[in-house]
Design a protein around this nucleic acid. Sequence first.
DNA 1: CGAATATGATTGAGCGCTCAACTACGGGTA
DNA 2: TACCCGTAGTTGAGCGCTCAATCATATTCG
Lengths: 168, 168
Amino acid sequence: MSQPRWLSDEEQRVWRDFSAAVGMLRAHLESQLQHDAGMPHTYYEVLVVLSEAPGRVLRMSDLALATRSSRSRLSHAIARMEANGWVRRESCPTDKRGAFAHLTAEGMAALEAAAPGHVDAVRASLFDPLTPEQVSQLGEIVAAVREGLSPRCAAAEAEELERYDVAE
Amino acid sequence: MSQPRWLSDEEQRVWRDFSAAVGMLRAHLESQLQHDAGMPHTYYEVLVVLSEAPGRVLRMSDLALATRSSRSRLSHAIARMEANGWVRRESCPTDKRGAFAHLTAEGMAALEAAAPGHVDAVRASLFDPLTPEQVSQLGEIVAAVREGLSPRCAAAEAEELERYDVAE
DNA sequence: CGAATATGATTGAGCGCTCAACTACGGGTA
DNA sequence: TACCCGTAGTTGAGCGCTCAATCATATTCG
């Protein structure tokens, strides 16, 4: 750990290309959605998850988990989306702390209006440049990265807690 | 174009995993840099590019190009980084509109302090979960995506201009 | 030359995100 | 019952980003 292990030449090249490609992809999709549908990509993801939930309703916490978002971020997001008429908040009768987020008809309409353009953009910028073989390779690669990252978060949290224990 | 072409099941699965993996990776690296070095990843990239430039100086426009950033974003960023003492602005004598961004010794020190932790995080979260073969596959994939995205930007710009021509 | 246009860079407003409180409620234990 | 801690969700401040407008200087062309 003391001696920094730098990246190999190939790793460095791959990392820089990766960083650039992902950055450009994000920027491209973000701007496409913003221009054509007037929403950021994260809001789009919220609409997608809600639209697939039974009854188009989800507890805030579950929605945050499904969108890999913090509760705070989701809370701010839902506030805006509620102002847009895309979502309605409902309080939970069994747990008075809880809140539901309910997709409205207008929210569903906004999603349906946004989806085709977004899907086209995703295909054009990600899948079209790749061979079918590369698509399947990419599938395994991102699955491995995701796998490696999930426990890592847990470990970081544990370390964080441990630090608190030591400090106090 | 009129009938929306949806993603295949595999494409959808790959896209969602990709989106999740990239999001988690970004969040992880961003928070690591913010916690350990007190800077966002974009500032880190500015420091890297400046540190590799001859004389550690670059024109604002060139720096924006190299970091794939808008001039506006870079201008705001350099303003903060100058306040941090990491960068010094200098006016260009031959073109009075121009400005140079010059990496200071403190900026170099900040980069050197941040680099090992960041590189460790990149390796741990991206390269360690992958086989060497997957790394090389990923290299070709991101190169293809990047390639596909660069002309696409140019095309979008052209279309944008055309729209203005038609409108007025 | 002089007017129109193009280019380099900055600015301010508005938005989404993070972080650290904070409120409010639920569940466990003495 | 009363207390304490954990959980659900919200809030406000601060930051980085985008977008459009602006300023100053180059360049092009009638």
